[in-house]
Design a protein around this nucleic acid. Structure first.
Lengths: 251, 251
DNA sequence: CGATGCTTTGACGAACTTCAACGCGGGTGG
DNA sequence: CCACCCGCGTTGAAGTTCGTCAAAGCATCG
């Protein structure tokens, strides 16, 4: 069960050997329970930039964990627009919003070449009956997702453009940090358009804010590449965010 | 276990005799499983208008189902403001956002005299291991909550004042309808202030929109009382809302 | 009956969107 | 290898929506 081998097209890394172990679903599981989970997980070939992991209306079968790369989820609105509902970075789950309807309410598109673990939900549910700690972790993950959505709501409800972009950059920063990457320097895989859409702002406003942030010495930005010079100030500007983290998990 | 009696201060109605049976947690449960759930549920004395069911930071022990009345949940923001994160009507659950953090990230205040069922989460979790259909229902409820939050996000991200208020009124309408009340006529238990806060609008803007809606013949409003004359048009105005319902459940 | 809190209304200004144009960079084809 | 093209990002100007400020109307309650 655990002698997974690295192949060319199907990279098989057992949960126990995965660097995301502490962030992902198996967090807190005992070794033998971990293997049970490991067995039901499907490792798929990487999704290329622009390809979809699933589409709006697709039947719900699995939830997904991002192993590397990043994914955006978005829903169509009645007037034919799209609304970006979330960005999912390494170690984050998506698809949880499909459980109740039994189909995916959003489309998931890779922002760059991305590997995911596919976790068939029925089997996960069965496993949950056997492994209480997995059950609990699953509840925790879903609850955190609700909490995260509330935070996003909070952001869009009361905050101006400056605060929104600051909060967004801070959120990305925190998420990279908790995965062992630099919180001060990273590449944004999503376009300005996606960011604006997600934050409820026009692209132009996002661009202007980036310029303003840079002029004030808060950060340096060049296309996708962001270097944050003053995380404390960014934090102050973000203001609104509720006490706890901004960790995303589903979409 | 099922011979609950109506008392004066503690109204005891077994799940199987509750009119919300089809909307609430026990949906789809077999008779004997229902009784198991029934046993762990605590019926508390009603919460009066303005009283809190729980407060921000309170330790998480239970989730709650609204039996009658309504509750608003709100979180403090860093600058001392409040952000209303949800309204919870009859048959809806709240407290699900506390599972991951182990404390409540929001305060829940009664908007009118409100009865709730308190469901100790640890015991519910245990019961979930025994009763797969309860487990599944719990996942479904949590997933629906994520979906609902996404919808709220969508609303705040892209929609103007008119669309927001229309979507809000439509959501309330749908929720009353699914509980067997009139979708065309209802009383709003929350203040204009709460509505504005929830929708990310100034109170004055909400008021102006109500006036505009009334002048256009869409509805009649007098303080809390709302009569909707043209649900179809309201639906068109709300526009943005994603395909499925607006059913809330947690906060 | 006055006090208080909620709601409405009007005037004004600020923030953000929209429209338009331009710059830049990466990819493609000659 | 260079030139061109196209998408993305930036910048400027004008327009609109909504928030803020101020004041008055109106119900509820002591």
């Amino acid at each position: 069960m655990s002698d997974k081998v690295v192949e060319l097209s199907k990279i098989k890394v057992a949960c126990k050997d995965c660097s995301l172990f502490q962030l992902c679903l198996p967090m807190g599981l005992e070794s033998d329970d971990l293997e049970k989970l490991d067995v039901i997980i499907k490792r798929r070939r990487p999704v290329k930039r622009g390809e979809d992991l699933f589409r709006v209306g697709d039947g719900f079968r699995s939830i997904y964990a991002v192993r590397s790369g990043s994914i955006k989820t978005f829903s169509p609105t009645q007037d034919g627009q799209e609304q970006v509902t979330g960005f999912h970075l390494t170690g984050e789950l998506l698809g949880l919003d499909a459980i109740s309807n039994n189909y995916h309410p959003c489309t998931a598109t890779a922002l760059e070449t991305t590997s995911v673990c596919e976790i068939p939900f029925e089997r996960l549910e069965e496993l949950g009956h056997q492994i209480p700690s997995l059950q609990r972790q699953l509840f925790r993950v879903m609850s955190r997702e609700i909490f995260t959505e509330e935070n996003h709501t909070l952001l869009l409800g009361k905050r101006n453009a400056e605060e929104r972009l600051a909060a967004f950059l801070l959120s990305v920063s925190n998420r990279f940090k908790s995965r062992g990457f630099s919180p001060n320097e990273y590449n944004l895989s999503m376009s300005r358009n996606d960011i604006g859409n997600y934050l409820g702002l026009a692209v132009e406003t996002v661009s202007r804010m980036f310029t303003r942030f840079q002029e004030s010495g808060l950060l340096t930005v060049e296309r996708k590449h962001v270097v944050i010079h003053d995380l404390d100030r960014l934090h102050d500007m973000a203001g609104s965010s509720r006490s706890s983290g901004n960790t995303r998990s589903s979409g």
